[in-house]
């Protein structure tokens, strides 16, 4: 039984674009990737919601994180930010643990995650993005206030700076969040559905902003839903469904076959069996 040839494996390298469900060797991690995710598994309760996610996010790209509802996209962003505990695995930001690199990360949470009746103005919210740069007990300096106003200017919300946030429309709320992230002046931006509930004009201007960020060398990861626009918006995609289905440059990866794999709906002989199974459980 204990036989083993010393013959080197003849396995050809998997081409970049080929969807490799099980790349047996694992990902080759670069120590300088903005985000390296090593075998991360996250479970909220009994079942894992993210399973063995293992990938590097490349630098200076505009990355789309695509997947069906409940695929674990928000959870992945939260795991990167250290907002949910991981069961195993770890995340490195430019090769170092998160705790040392917090300032490099900008986060745009899902819009519903906050109370829009809260008594703060647009400017207050944008200034919150800069709190990470002053530390406990300190107040913002004049320079910070100026940077917050610049961020407001960039998203075209200067006129509404003194409005209470409850008076904003969905698109305006999203722009406020975006301005808050811009004010952070982070190296890496993680955005959870920045286009959800946003009118098409705002969406276009947000995309232009994201491209600006990318062109300035920042890395941007966006959770995105609309399959139609993926190819136009992002130059790199990660298809996620509990695990990474595939990832790579948009042109290589964003194929119909891969989409079907991420979103399912494939009618094989077995899917009827699977449906029956789902009902039994």
């Amino acid at each position: 039984m204990e036989t083993r040839t010393d013959r080197p494996t003849t396995r050809p390298a998997v081409p970049e674009h080929r969807p490799a469900p099980a790349s047996p060797a694992g990902t080759d991690h670069s120590p300088n990737a903005p985000i390296s995710i090593h075998d991360v598994t996250v479970a909220y309760d009994r079942k894992p919601v993210l399973w063995d996610v293992d990938l590097d996010v490349p630098e200076g790209r505009l990355v789309g994180l695509i997947g069906p509802n409940g695929a674990g996209k928000s959870t992945l962003l939260k795991a990167i930010l250290g907002l949910v505990p991981v069961i195993s695995g770890r995340v490195a930001i430019y090769g170092k643990p998160l705790s040392k690199q917090r300032k490099l990360l900008g986060y745009v949470p899902q819009r519903e995650s906050v109370d829009w009746d809260f008594p703060v103005t647009v400017r207050d919210v944008v200034q919150m993005g800069l709190y990470g740069q002053v530390g406990w007990f300190r107040r913002l300096r004049r320079e910070h206030v100026r940077r917050a106003d610049e961020a407001l200017e960039r998203v075209g919300m200067t006129d509404l700076a003194d409005r209470q946030i409850s008076q904003l429309s969905g698109g305006q709320q999203q722009r406020v969040f975006l301005a808050r992230a811009l004010a952070q002046d982070a190296q890496i931006y993680l955005m959870d559905e920045p286009f959800a509930g946003v009118d098409s004009a705002t969406e276009k201007s947000i995309v232009a902003l994201l491209h600006d960020l990318r062109n300035a060398g920042r890395t941007v990861v966006c959770v995105h839903h609309d399959l139609q626009t993926v190819a136009a918006y992002f130059d790199y995609v990660i298809l996620l469904n509990m695990r990474v289905v595939t990832h790579g440059a948009t042109a290589d990866v964003y194929t119909e076959e891969n989409l079907r794999k991420t979103y399912g709906g494939q009618l094989t002989l077995l899917s009827s069996a699977a449906t029956a199974l789902a009902q039994r459980h």
């Binding site: 930010l81 906050v114 109370d115 919150m128």
Partner: peptide
């Protein structure tokens, strides 16, 4: 703790992400 409490009351997620 005015700024810290304001931030964590409005957006606990960002508050954690920024180290508060």
């Amino acid at each position: 703790l005015y700024k810290e409490l304001k931030l964590s009351s409005f957006d606990p997620g960002l508050s954690d992400a920024l180290g508060y």
